[in-house]
Design a protein around this nucleic acid. Structure first.
Lengths: 149, 149
DNA sequence: TAGAAATAGTTGCTATGACAAATATAAATA
DNA sequence: TATTTATATTTGTCATAGCAACTATTTCTA
């Protein structure tokens, strides 16, 4: 293995790019006059795809942990964009769903988010995109299976 | 441009991989018996490379913002690994440097971090690594120049 | 079936990061 | 030189994330 992998801190690069992506999302949402963060958007978007799931399921599909989802849903409920209802099958869990207001927010923001995704891949090919996803997932798998000494 | 770019949320993938990387760093540091976070490590490592720089310079090279660097240096000073001294040339800024203790910490952790970097690139080539860095920086540039509508 | 173990969710604590406002000092300018 | 402007740093507030401890409920098991 070459030395550049050992000496270059790619974590810092990933970190800075991810923070810029999130910032651009936030600015775009603000410019649209909607007070929502990128993380809140992730949950709202997921609920739009699969309405009525539990917080636990939301946590799994968005790779977030339970306390984080709990707090973000709190905020979304306060804004009137989601609502919780106790699941009759399992009274420990909630069924979380979009309100009509929440649905409108998604409708407004979806095209803007699509535009943002396009911007990120400017000057790159579809192949670049596929390689990038593959490598990102490979790094994840490499660390996932690793047992710490 | 193909539609998969529009429908896949690569931000979520980057987010989950970055969080796993940080978790593995944290676990490795804990396993070594050293109470330090990945972000604190980034600053300590940078100080080891360029000792005596200002917080502002630290912020620039690590892509962090000033308040974050200020608070992390606070923590590192409390742990006795760094110290601040007022710069005689510019009395607004500090010269931040590693203490002897801080140097020892870096010495212990450097090989472990090199090992972690290798782990992340398991099953991948040096070329994969270069492509990845190139794409990550291209995404950054794409968003950097973008003016929000 | 009663008690133990597991699961869904919440809350408290700490760290990081973004933004805004504040202080102290330096640099530029009229 | 006096005043304005810019810069380095700090502090406050909020959002996200991880961990641990807690409650309520469900599932497993002796």
């Amino acid at each position: 293995m070459s030395s550049s992998i050992l000496t270059n801190s790619y974590g810092t690069l990933i970190d800075r790019t991810l923070r810029l992506i999130k910032l651009r999302y936030l600015q775009t949402f603000r410019a649209a006059g909607i007070d929502i963060t990128p993380e809140q958007w992730v949950l709202l978007d997921k609920l739009n795809q699969t309405n009525g799931v539990s917080q636990n399921e939301l946590a799994n599909v968005t790779f977030k942990n339970a306390p984080t989802v709990s707090r973000i849903i709190d905020l979304l409920c306060k804004k009137g964009w989601t609502k919780r209802s106790r699941s009759p099958q399992d009274r420990r869990s909630y069924s979380v769903s979009l309100t009509k207001e929440g649905g409108k927010i998604v409708e407004i923001l979806l095209p803007k988010v699509a535009h943002l995704r396009q911007l990120g891949w400017k000057n790159m090919s579809e192949e670049d995109h596929l390689i990038f996803i593959k490598i990102m997932n490979q790094i994840y798998e490499n660390y996932e299976e690793e047992i710490i000494e």
